[in-house]
Amino acid sequence: MHEIKLGDVTVTRVEEMHGPIMAPGAFFPELPADAWQEHRDLLVPDHLGADDLVHAAMQTWLLRSEGRTILVDTGVGNDKTRPSVPMWDHLDRDFLDRLATAGVRPEDVDLVVNTHLHADHVGWNTRLVDGQWVPTFPNATYLMPRADYQPRTAGDAFEDSVVPIHESGQARFWEDAYVIDANLRLEAAPGHTPGSAVIKLSSGDDRALFAGDLLHTPLQLLHPEHNSCFCEDPAAARVSRRRLLGWAADAGALVLPAHFSGHSAFEVAHRGDAFAVTEWAAFPRY
């Protein structure tokens, strides 16, 4: 089952796709090359393939909390023009069918949370209908970090996956922190982008951290000082990563990053000035 229960919240993993992304040295230019070899047992095959490329997943966390259906991040999306990332260009994936298998139709979604506004987190915000980009989830409020709501480069996700949500009146912008319900709270985690955020879950005895792009590989637990090449403010990203992984370790929280393949989520502990996986989640491996 791609579903677990955390207190009163049901968490379902809905995959868009997974596989090789890019070479380690390109993805994490500051990480020592020998670290990838030293920790192959931790990384291979789920996070580093036999092809010596970093592997990752595009996935959505589907939450059912207090009677509402909530999506955390929406992947790359279909039909999007992404010439700078050929593997994302004009996709034709069965994501909505997978969502239906989890028991959710687009009209059932009450809330969409974009942890930040990069292209691989907002793609299914919209879909192409008669040549127009329209909200995929017509009854949902879309929570977006205000700090990320700004035009970036021409042809990126802003125009096709973010602006139509604003124009439809479905966007709600927030800053610093936002209480979703009694179980879920958004918290700013700047660095990867100015508005990057995480969701903290606290329900019964369970704690969880929906970590967005706080980290992209388990190697960043052992080397939390190192960022991906996509972190826009490296210093702030380091601070956010250490702070939130420290919270997760202290709280016994399950960490659910946006892009981990394999079991996708893990529990973490302090290891000196770094961190380590203590147990992987009960999700089956991709």
Results as ranks from 00 to 15, higher is better:
89 D>I: 08
89 D>R: 10
89 D>T: 07
91 L>Y: 08
91 L>C: 08
92 D>W: 13
92 D>A: 15
92 D>T: 13
92 D>F: 14
93 R>F: 15
93 R>K: 14
94 D>V: 06
94 D>S: 15
94 D>R: 10
94 D>Q: 14
95 F>Y: 14
96 L>V: 13
98 R>D: 04
98 R>I: 06
100 A>Y: 13
100 A>H: 11
101 T>W: 15
102 A>N: 15
102 A>F: 12
103 G>M: 12
103 G>K: 08
105 R>P: 08
105 R>K: 15
105 R>L: 13
106 P>C: 03
106 P>R: 03
106 P>W: 02
107 E>P: 09
107 E>Q: 11
107 E>T: 09
108 D>G: 00
108 D>Q: 00
109 V>W: 09
109 V>N: 12
109 V>R: 15
109 V>F: 14
109 V>T: 09
109 V>I: 11
109 V>H: 12
109 V>E: 06
110 D>W: 00
110 D>R: 05
110 D>V: 02
111 L>I: 02
112 V>G: 01
112 V>Y: 01
112 V>F: 01
113 V>P: 03
113 V>K: 10
114 N>E: 00
114 N>V: 01
114 N>K: 00
114 N>P: 02
116 H>T: 13
116 H>M: 12
116 H>D: 12
117 L>S: 03
117 L>E: 04
117 L>C: 04
120 D>C: 04
121 H>S: 01
121 H>L: 02
122 V>P: 00
122 V>T: 01
122 V>Y: 00
